[in-house]
């Protein structure tokens, strides 16, 4: 399997007012092509620094990395040619219109003049700015500028897209449109990395996540696998609802060796088991005269997943 990003012991130490700031700490990470990856973590975790190293905007203090097979130190220009990047704290020229701004960027990307108009139109349509082509960027709202930033990343038609805090400044509608765009880009085979401190904003889109804290990747993996692991560790939550003597039934279930916890609620029973025993429960119910209306394994939510790791790391969810 080829990885679009491979890092080995990637480390960045900033010198700031005589003090060393360890922003990225011996990071080892592989990102699979074709996926949507969430790079998550609180402010100051090192996400932006990591992204800047990947694209040659800052040099690592030690360690190495490859992006699309190119070395981040020696071939950073090739990387920036093929990677669309929405950086943190980007800006545009206020006295120019959106197409004029993009034209400059197209020129820097060696996009031939003949192709530019078409490419710029496409990028602007993808982010919904096609109707404000004659307006100067100085008059744009924060959300419009954010959209233009995204358009800038799309302009070079990249294989890999990295968005740093992409939903900052977007209204709910813009944020939804952005998520649709990400899914569409991914469907076209592009790898998308979404870096954000807002977990729930983009979390649900991601196939894989990396949670960073204090420069380290504290969790990484496919969301599905992480969920399964979480269920195995924390137990399967099974909800049973129905008519009959639920109290007696609950006592009987408590006797099963797979059951770790059981709770009798108003409308039913909630239990935690070490494996999926819902079939067994269904069979037992009729023996106890319980008419089951609902019997389901409750999948853990993304929130459960984050809560677990964030609590372990002592990070507050913001």
């Amino acid at each position: 399997m080829d990885f679009v990003i491979e890092t080995k012991e990637l480390t960045k130490v900033y010198k700031s007012e005589g003090k060393d700031v360890l922003a990225v700490d011996h990071l080892n990470l592989n990102v699979e092509g074709g996926s949507i990856l969430g790079l998550l973590g609180p402010n100051g975790a090192g996400k932006t620094t990591f992204i800047m190293m990947l694209t040659g905007l800052t040099l690592p203090t030690s360690g190495t990395a490859k992006v699309l097979g190119y070395d981040i130190i020696k071939e950073s220009r090739e990387i920036r040619k093929k990677v669309g990047l929405l950086p943190e704290g980007f800006g545009f020229y206020d006295h120019l219109t959106a197409p004029q701004n993009l034209d400059y960027i197209a020129a820097l990307n060696d996009i031939p003049k003949a192709e530019r108009v078409k490419r710029i139109d496409e990028a602007l349509s993808l982010v919904g700015l096609q109707d404000v082509k004659d307006r100067k960027v100085g008059g744009f709202s924060r959300g419009m500028k954010q959209r233009l930033g995204i358009a800038q990343a799309l302009l070079k038609n990249p294989e890999l897209l990295i968005f740093d805090e992409p939903t900052v400044g977007l209204d709910p509608e813009g944020s939804r449109a952005f998520k649709d765009l990400v899914l569409r880009l991914n469907k076209d085979g592009k790898t998308v990395i979404l870096s954000t401190h807002l977990l729930f904003e983009v979390g649900p889109l991601c196939h894989s996540i990396v949670v960073m804290n204090r420069g380290k990747a504290v969790v990484q993996g496919r969301v599905r696998e992480l969920m399964e692991k979480l269920m195995a560790e924390e137990g399967y939550r099974i909800r049973i609802e129905g008519k009959g003597n639920l109290g007696t039934f609950a006592d009987a279930l408590r006797g099963l060796k797979e059951v770790k916890e059981i709770k009798l609620e108003d409308r039913g029973i909630l239990l935690k088991a070490i494996s999926d025993i819902s079939l067994q429960i269904g069979r037992m119910a009729s023996n106890y005269g319980v008419e089951v209306s609902t019997l389901r394994v409750e999948e853990p939510t993304l929130e459960d997943l984050f809560m677990k790791y964030y609590r372990k790391e002592g990070i507050s969810i913001g």
Binding site: L57, E78, K81, P87, G91, L108, N109
Partner: peptide, 14 residues
Amino acid sequence: EKGTLKTTLVQPVF
């Protein structure tokens, strides 16, 4: 200050 430096630097330029 305007952030245009960032926008330029993420393009394939040195």
